[in-house]
């Protein structure tokens, strides 16, 4: 075979093999990328389901311990009235206590309903609902609020942000031994920033996040990831904690 012909043959073989290898490499990369994406997506769905279950647990526990106990005691008091053993004075006392308890139960039910699906989000938007938090938690903690929340943002985003904020306040109430929380909501054209900190004892976010001691922080992290937001947590051990979230806003 003349040298020129053999050179051409080698060139053809090499170029064909190179192009073929490149195409196969590209196809394999696409396949692997999709596989990774699918796994990530299914993990995200699982996290969402887990968050839902956790929330249901919290609601069930709240109803059982709060509303259930109040109504149960009221029932007991009213049943005692029906029995003839009690004096008229005791009966009146029971009615008075039961009335107070039913009134308390109605308040509990309102609070539970508010935390399940705050009506004001639908009616007045997130900004007004965040303002209402000051009143809602007034007898438990002081909320120092600087609220520049954008109007008319996606409903789902509003709900997630609201839940994150309430989860943070509940964490503070349960663990931080704080008496004041500072909440700063601001935004640019496309991003919303939420800054939250309290004056409590603080704790190590990473340790609490991954040690499995509670679900509150995991729920917050899942919600932030779900909305493709970013979470920044700065803390010094045994000092106040500070959260910052960044979200891309979708206006409606």
């Amino acid at each position: 075979m003349p040298k020129e012909n053999s050179d051409i043959l080698v060139l053809l073989i090499v170029s064909t093999a190179s192009l073929l290898s490149l195409s196969i490499f590209f196809i394999v990369m696409v396949y692997r990328y999709q596989k990774r994406m699918a796994i990530k997506q299914s993990e995200m769905y699982l996290k969402v389901l887990q968050a839902q279950e956790d929330e249901r647990n919290v609601i069930a526990r709240d109803i059982h311990d709060g509303l259930g106990a109040l109504l149960g005691t009221s029932h007991l008091l009213l049943t005692q009235i029906l029995s003839s053993k009690l004096s008229e004075q005791d009966k009146l006392k029971n009615i008075e206590t039961a009335t107070l308890m039913i009134s308390e139960a109605a308040k509990e039910a309102r609070n539970a309903s508010q935390s399940l699906m705050p009506d004001s989000i639908k009616r007045f938007g997130l900004k007004a609902t965040i303002n209402d938090l000051k009143v809602l938690y007034a007898n438990r903690i002081e909320i120092k609020l600087n609220n520049d929340c954008p109007e008319n943002i996606e409903n789902l985003l509003e709900l997630h942000i609201y839940r994150i904020i309430t989860e943070l306040i509940n964490n503070t109430l349960k663990h931080a031994r704080a008496n004041t929380v500072f909440l700063n909501v601001s935004h640019t054209k496309h991003t919303i920033f939420i800054e939250y900190y309290d004056n409590g004892i603080g704790y190590d976010f990473k340790v609490n996040m991954y040690a499995g001691t509670g679900n509150g922080l995991k729920n917050i992290k899942n919600r932030v990831e779900l909305l493709q937001g970013e979470i920044e947590q700065s803390h010094e051990q045994n000092k106040a904690m500070k959260f910052t979230f960044n979200y891309h806003i979708k206006h409606v």
Partner: peptide, 29 residues
């Protein structure tokens, strides 16, 4: 993708290959 990328090399030099008329190159094709 595979069909395109694995056959175009030969066709890029098709005229030249045909002119050479070399059996091994045509065999490879």
């Amino acid at each position: 993708i595979l069909f395109g990328f694995s056959t175009i090399s030969v066709y890029i030099m098709f005229e030249y290959v045909m002119k050479l008329g070399d059996s091994s190159v045509i065999l490879f094709h």
